[in-house]
Design a protein around this nucleic acid. Structure first.
Lengths: 205, 205, 205, 205
DNA sequence: CATGAATGAGGATTCATTCAT
DNA sequence: GATGAATGAATCCTCATTCAT
């Protein structure tokens, strides 16, 4: 009994420490990129010694893996908060402008890109990223499928996965490119996005 | 006369050497990533000494810049070969499946991503990438604007730039994610893409 | 208490390590020159890894800076031990023959020269060297000014700085050139030096 | 006959080429220092190819040797132009202010220092520098010895060499340190220099 | 003679990882 | 558990020198 309790305590501590590392690593990766963020920087951001990190993560790559895993939760939450299709484009634009409350926890697009790039080399990361994509798409799909009464879109099961993918392309593509395209008119952008979402979400005629 | 000829020869050699470096660098970057590909690796891939690369490029970053610049030509060619909107989705799918002839010269999406990630840190690369994006969007925009008789889409000038951006998001988003989503049905994907392109390209009613 | 003590220990270690590096660097610089002495050589002379040096000094230049700074103390000590003007020329000759106890800590003239040469290129080193010169001249000046009863020379304030400079030119010039002039007669040299010092130190008539 | 003449021509060409290299090298060394001046820079300053330099000098060190040798002539000239002791301090101050016509051909003090530093390592350079010093001192000595009627100082043979050394220390020491001591008053400096020169040059009482 | 492209060893510096305390 | 000093391999880049043309 006593032992069990102390093990539980120990386990809790381990989880807490891991999270401390992950939070610090994410902050560093976002700010400086995966390669530019050194273990020393991460350690000092997490206010621990470099050596201690290795008690919780085998190496730097393992940290990335854990971060991807963590993002699953964040992304799921975001999607679950989607309500009716009506305010979808507003939500997307808020996301582009980083007005969403979850954004502080979520990885930035540059980091996502760097991870994607890394994935083409490291199979473990590729696998983690694939699982991430699958989950996000399936959550998005669920929302498309869900009845309109339940805050969903009421699309037939048939091609929901494919529509979810398109939706993702639009959202993440805009997130990546919008900051590089300051000359574009947000209102026109939104009007066209509305047309596309209409096409995408109202289903086949 | 003699001098002129020899100068031409020298210039040709320089161009050839630069291309040798660029080809080797592109191969290494694609295979191993920007950071993991060392100058030594690039040099040995190009079958030259490390020092020689610096005769043609000031530093490693300059190689990335040159690669981006080179992509402008490839991307432009690809867009110029766009004909009527009818076969657009076919062209896109050929591009996803890498059946296009230009693909061997074109950078892979992972490399594009890594460059994008690098751009958030290096202002020179950011600028080059911005120019790349602007050019591609403007070429796409030209095509959207051009008369249907000329193999274009005949869209009014008004929001062509914004539509071009959306088009880009869809194409590049699919190029990135499709390989990670083997379970999706290409025919359904194409049907939905057709609907979206129809919305995007047929213009406001 | 415990913490305080351990902090003191840490600080002591840092100082000790820095001194280890400085001693090794000084030896290497003297033996091989600033440029020819590689960080690897310095490291192995100090019996540490190259990387460790960078924990204590930002870069190679910082080592030179620290060496100059260190010389301030040595030079000051040497000047403070100056007593009456009578035995000045003896002290100088002892210095030329390296019979002074501080000499093991003091930089050699070649190193001083190389540092001087480096100063014409690196502004930081120039500044450090200027401070060094100013301090040495001002200490020498203090001695010239101090009353004869206090072991000084009792010169009027008026042109003490200029006299100190001349004194320095003679001392360091001899230190540099004497070893290259073995044919010269030390006794005659000393006699003339005495005359010059007399002129310099007894002040305006 | 013909052959002799062409050999003479060839020899002249070789000398001309060597001088071209030396002039370029000296300019580069003065501006950037011995180590920072690359053979490529020297070559392009001399408007020849790097490879060609090696036809005339075995390596970079040989260039330094030749420069020292060359300085003998310049220094000799300068000393020979010394007239009576009266205007000596004026000449020295002109030299400090670089108003002398020979200065463009003469090596700068930083370069002299760097060479001196190098001399403590490279015996060939040490030997060349020693010869340089001996020559300069002996020329200065000749001047001190020469009769006052001949524009000399009329000192007795006895300790002329030692006096010449002291003179050199003062001149070169000032040349080195004056630029680092802007706060000093040139008039006072000159007054004291005059006193010292008086002591040095008027001989034993 | 002359070129300048090519070499490759060697330079300073960084950083993931380990391990004595 | 926790530290952070220490390691040393690896990185980018430079440059004296050579040699095919």
């Amino acid at each position: 009994m006593k032992k069990e309790k102390s093990e539980t305590k120990a386990a809790a501590r381990i989880r807490a420490q891991k999270e401390r590392v992950l939070a610090a690593a994410q902050a560093c990766f976002v700010e400086r990129g995966f390669h530019a963020a050194s273990m020393a920087t991460i350690a000092s951001t997490a206010r621990m010694s470099p050596g201690l990190i290795y008690r919780y993560f085998e190496n730097k790559n393992a940290i990335i893996l854990a971060i991807i895993e963590q993002q699953l939760t964040v992304a799921r939450q975001r999607i679950r908060q989607l309500q009716s299709a009506e305010n979808l484009s507003k939500r997307i634009f808020d996301y582009l402008d980083e007005k969403e409350p979850e954004d502080e926890k979520s990885i930035s697009i540059p980091l996502y890109l760097e991870i994607s790039a890394q994935a083409t080399r490291d199979p473990q990361i590729a696998e983690a990223l694939r699982r991430y994509d699958v989950t996000v798409r399936s959550e998005l799909g669920d929302w498309l499928r869900r009845g309109r009464g339940d805050g969903g879109c009421g699309l037939p099961d048939d091609d929901v996965a494919e529509r979810a993918l398109m939706l993702l392309c639009l959202i993440e593509g805009l997130k990546l490119r919008a900051p590089r395209s300051p000359a574009l008119d947000p209102r026109k952008l939104r009007k066209i996005l509305d047309e596309l979402l209409e096409t995408l979400v109202s289903g086949p005629v």
